Amino acid sequence: MKNARLGILMLDTRFPRILGDVGNPASFDFPVRYHVVPGATPEAIVLSDPRPWTEAFIAAGRALVDQGCTGLATTCGFLTLARDEVQAACGVPVASSALEEVPRIAAVLPPGQVPGIITISQASLSPAHLAAARVAAGTPVIGVDRGSFARSILSDAETLDVPAARREMIEAARQLCADHPEVGAIVLECTNMPPHADAVADATGRPVHSILTYLNRFHAELT
Rank of each mutant, 00 (worst) to 15 (best):
A185C: 15
V86T: 02
G77I: 03
I8M: 13
V200M: 13
A136P: 01
T159P: 04
M10G: 08
P31D: 13
Y34N: 05
F15Y: 15
M10T: 12
E55T: 03
A44R: 13
A132Y: 06
V86M: 05
S96D: 07
A201G: 15
A197K: 12
A73K: 07
N192P: 00
Q67P: 06
V208Q: 05
V114N: 01
L188W: 11
E221P: 00
E182A: 15
S148T: 14
P163F: 13
L125K: 04
V108L: 07
A136Q: 14
T191A: 15
V86D: 01
G23M: 10
L222C: 07
D198P: 00
V22Y: 03
P140D: 06
S126A: 06
F149K: 05
I170K: 10
G71L: 01
V187K: 12
V135G: 00
D49K: 02
I117Y: 02
L212F: 05
A131E: 10
R83C: 02
A203F: 12
E43T: 05
D84F: 04
L125Q: 03
M1K: 14
A133D: 02
V86F: 01
V187Y: 13
R146K: 14
I170Y: 12
S97F: 04
V114I: 14
A220K: 14
A136Y: 02
E43H: 11
E158Q: 14
A107Y: 06
L176E: 10
A178D: 15
D21N: 13
V144Q: 09
A56F: 02
A123E: 11
D12A: 07
T13Q: 11
N192Y: 08
G138C: 08
V92W: 04
L176K: 09
W53G: 02
L47M: 12
K2D: 15
V94F: 11
T70I: 08
A95C: 03
A137R: 09
E189S: 05
R104V: 00
A136M: 03
R62S: 05
P195Q: 09
R14V: 14
V102H: 06
Q67V: 05
A220H: 15
L212P: 06
A131F: 01
A44V: 08
A98Y: 12
F28T: 04
G7N: 10
D66N: 11
V86C: 00
